[in-house]
């Protein structure tokens, strides 16, 4: 028993030294900008076939949705919905960027028509809610339908 207790204490210290990982979630609510000079309502928003969400900084990952998945193409409105990014990072900066393409086969750079960015300070908060707006930056490959 006298030998067991120091061993248990050592194991506990090792566990404490190793630390515990904890998930943090960043929920990014994405909306297309349909203001004047931006996407021309649902007629143009519905031409968006592919979105690529990338994260750099304290953590990194990439997610592509579409065509015909993840809510694309939008049928009504300009509100796409939430992207949820999970990470163990609780410090530093997370740089979110989303690229919108209106070409239905892949993320063809020549068909990039919209972009949105958001920088968030990573913290110990379990769930961070943020919004992101995709602005129109180029004509893309598909007429806007107006």
């Amino acid at each position: 028993m006298r030998r067991l207790l120091p061993m248990l204490a050592l194991a506990a210290a090792s566990v404490g030294a190793a630390g515990c990982n904890e998930y943090h979630y960043y929920d990014i609510d994405v909306t297309f900008n349909t203001a004047a000079g931006q996407f021309a309502g649902i007629n143009e928003v519905s031409t968006i076939q592919v979105l690529v969400m990338s994260v750099t900084g304290a953590d990194s990952d990439v997610l592509q949705i579409g065509p015909n998945s993840g809510g694309l193409p939008l049928q009504t409105g300009a509100h796409l919905g939430i992207f949820e990014f999970s990470t163990f990072a609780d410090s530093g900066q997370l740089n979110f960027k989303i690229d919108a393409y209106d070409e239905d086969s892949s993320a063809n750079p020549g068909c990039k028509t919209g972009e949105g960015t958001k920088t968030i300070n990573a913290s110990a908060t379990i769930t961070v809610m943020e919004t992101m707006t995709i602005n129109k930056i180029a004509p893309g490959c598909v007429p806007d339908g107006t």
Partner: peptide, 16 residues
């Protein structure tokens, strides 16, 4: 990891 919300339509990524 937390299960992806049905409303997110599979738009979950990152760790786990």
């Amino acid at each position: 990891v937390r299960p992806c919300n049905m409303d997110f339509k599979g738009r979950c990524f990152g760790e786990g």
